[in-house]
Every structure is written in structure tokens, then in C-alpha cells.
């Protein structure tokens, strides 16, 4: 195929996809434990980015500490959402909870806009350097860092849910909430843990992703990460952590390929926003053809 680029979108896609994968794992955790679709997840990401910005550029902390602040912002947002919004709606239809989590985004986005306006915030990479040349493309240290974070998170969570008591208890609540309560598992704590972890993962993605493009805008987590992460989770069948991991990478690469190559297809040379179209195509395609996901077992 003439003019198609492969290596560069592959690298971009892997790095972005790793961030989508982190958020997708958070979505899967919440869905597994309570069958809730968390539409606030995007803002956990934005808060992660925002926390880092505040830590490094406003409070002038050393950069690694600023990153910790970012992750803490995300985690706190996850915990607060659970405690203030999700728990009071425990026994309501799941769509009510969905709309409530969307409302969390509605509350957070204007706050970010009040402080930052519509201009982009600068975001500097955690590690400076030229990067390594792979397949003729430079891979920046930041991109490698995201992929490493995703790999570590996935391994860590797989260990947590497969080996630890708390992890197993969390899985048990998702299968049998009543039975779990009977054997003494405290659902509220599990719920808090799940949302905290989702907030942590979202915050981590928010800390790591913006430096790749060197800036971010208010609400970017909702407008440019959320739907990709959800699509990743759906690709993985909504309940599989490894599925969400792989789904994130797949979505990242598909989007980057679309961004780089769609305009080279006949008749599509000036299609704006090819990555948004790609997401819709992938999402609707999966839901129509294989609603149980491609990589997971159950939807």
C-alpha cells in the first residue's frame, strides 16, 4: 500500500494505548465488582495530569513528587466518587449510577476550566532524552515509561486478584454479593478499594500521557481518553483485566493508524477526526458482531 506509514503510528499507538489500557482496567474493575459503567473515569485522568501540573509548576515540587501528587489526585477523585455519589445510589438502576458518574465529570470539568481556561497546560516529560530508535522511529523515554507502567499495573493486578485474600474477596463480591456479605466480606470496603484503584490507575494515566504531546487541556480525559478506554474494555469483554490491557493497546494502535493513514485512502483525503470515526467503527462493530468482546469471556 503506497504511502502508508506503519512504524510511527505503531509507537504512538502503543504508548497511547497503554494509557487507555490503564483506564480500561479501572473501568473493568468497577464493572466486575458492581456492574457500573463509570463515566467519571476520564476526569480521574485529567485530575492526574492536573495534579502533576500543580505540583511541578505551581508548588514547584521536584518532578517525581509532582507525579505522586498527580496519582494522589486521581485516587482521591476515585474514592470521593465512590463515597459521595456511587454508594448512596447503591440500590438504584445502573443507568442512574451511570448518569451520576457523568455528572461527576460535569462538576469537575468546569472547575478545571475556571482555573485553566481553555488554553492548554504544559506537561513536561518525566525523563528527558532523545529516546531509542526502533524500526526507524524514535521512541521517547516517556512512551517507554507508559508502557512499563501498564505492564507493571497489569501484572500487579493479576497477582492481586489471583493470589491475595482481598483480591479474591473482591472477585467474590462481583459474583455473589449476598453470599459475600454472609461470609463476612465488607462490601463497602471492597467498593471503596475498587474505586480507589480505578482512580489510581486513571491518575497514573493522567500523569504519564500528557507529556507525550507536551500539553493537555481541561476535560481532556473525558473528551479524548474515556471513549477509547471504554472501547478497550468492551474489546476485552468488560470483565477481563488482561482483555482490557490488550484492548487498550489495540485501540491505541487502531486510532493511531487511522490518524496517520486514513487520509491516504481514496475518497477520504480530507476526513477530519479519523480517530473518532475509527473508535465508533470498532465499538459498534464489536458490539454488533461479538458483544461478549473479542478477548474476554463474558460481557
Amino acid at each position: 500500500m503506497p504511502g502508508f506509514v506503519v512504524a510511527q503510528p505503531l509507537v504512538f499507538g502503543l504508548a497511547n494505548g497503554a494509557a487507555f489500557g490503564l483506564v480500561a482496567i479501572g473501568l473493568v474493575l468497577i464493572y466486575k465488582s458492581s456492574r457500573v459503567f463509570n463515566f467519571a473515569a476520564g476526569e480521574f485522568v485529567t485530575l492526574g495530569a492536573f495534579g502533576t501540573y500543580v505540583g511541578s509548576s505551581v508548588v514547584k515540587l521536584p518532578y517525581p513528587l509532582a507525579m505522586v501528587v498527580g496519582v494522589l489526585f486521581g485516587t482521591a477523585a476515585g474514592l470521593a466518587t465512590e463515597r459521595l455519589v456511587v454508594r448512596p445510589l447503591n440500590d438504584r438502576p445502573k443507568v442512574t449510577v451511570l448518569v451520576a458518574t457523568a455528572a461527576v465529570a460535569i462538576v469537575l470539568i468546569p472547575f478545571e476550566l475556571m482555573i485553566g481556561k481553555v488554553k492548554p497546560f504544559p506537561a513536561r516529560p518525566a525523563i528527558h532524552g532523545v529516546g531509542v530508535k526502533i524500526l526507524g522511529v524514535y521512541v521517547s523515554p516517556q512512551q517507554m515509561l507508559i508502557m512499563l507502567a501498564l505492564a507493571l499495573s497489569a501484572i500487579g493486578l493479576a497477582w492481586f486478584f489471583g493470589r491475595t485474600d482481598l483480591g479474591l474477596a473482591t472477585l467474590a463480591t462481583s459474583q455473589e454479593p449476598t453470599a459475600s456479605r454472609l461470609v463476612g466480606i465488607r462490601l463497602n470496603r471492597i467498593s471503596l478499594l475498587t474505586w480507589g484503584t480505578a482512580g489510581f490507575l486513571g491518575g497514573l494515566a493522567g500523569v504519564l500521557l500528557p507529556p507525550v504531546t507536551s500539553n493537555f487541556t481541561a476535560g481532556f480525559g473525558t473528551t479524548s481518553v474515556l471513549i477509547s478506554a471504554f472501547t478497550a474494555a468492551v474489546l476485552g469483554g468488560m470483565t477481563s483485566i488482561p482483555g482490557a490491557f490488550v484492548g487498550g493497546i489495540v485501540v491505541g494502535i487502531v486510532q493511531a493508524m487511522a490518524q496517520f493513514n486514513v487520509n491516504k485512502l481514496p475518497g477520504l483525503h480530507d476526513l477530519p477526526g479519523p480517530n473518532s470515526v475509527a473508535i465508533l467503527v470498532v465499538l459498534v462493530g464489536v458490539l454488533l458482531v461479538r458483544p461478549t468482546g473479542i478477548l474476554g469471556k463474558e460481557a
Binding site: 459503567f37 443507568v95 451511570l98 474515556l226 471513549i227 471504554f230 472501547t231 468492551v234 473518532s276 473508535i279 465508533l280 465499538l283 459498534v284 458490539l287 458483544p291 460481557a299
Partner: peptide, 8 residues
């Protein structure tokens, strides 16, 4: 799941 489609 349809909510996701509308979002996209």
C-alpha cells in the same frame, strides 16, 4: 453498552 455508542 448503547450509552457508549452514543458517546462515540
Amino acid at each position: 453498552y448503547f450509552a457508549l455508542v452514543t458517546l462515540a
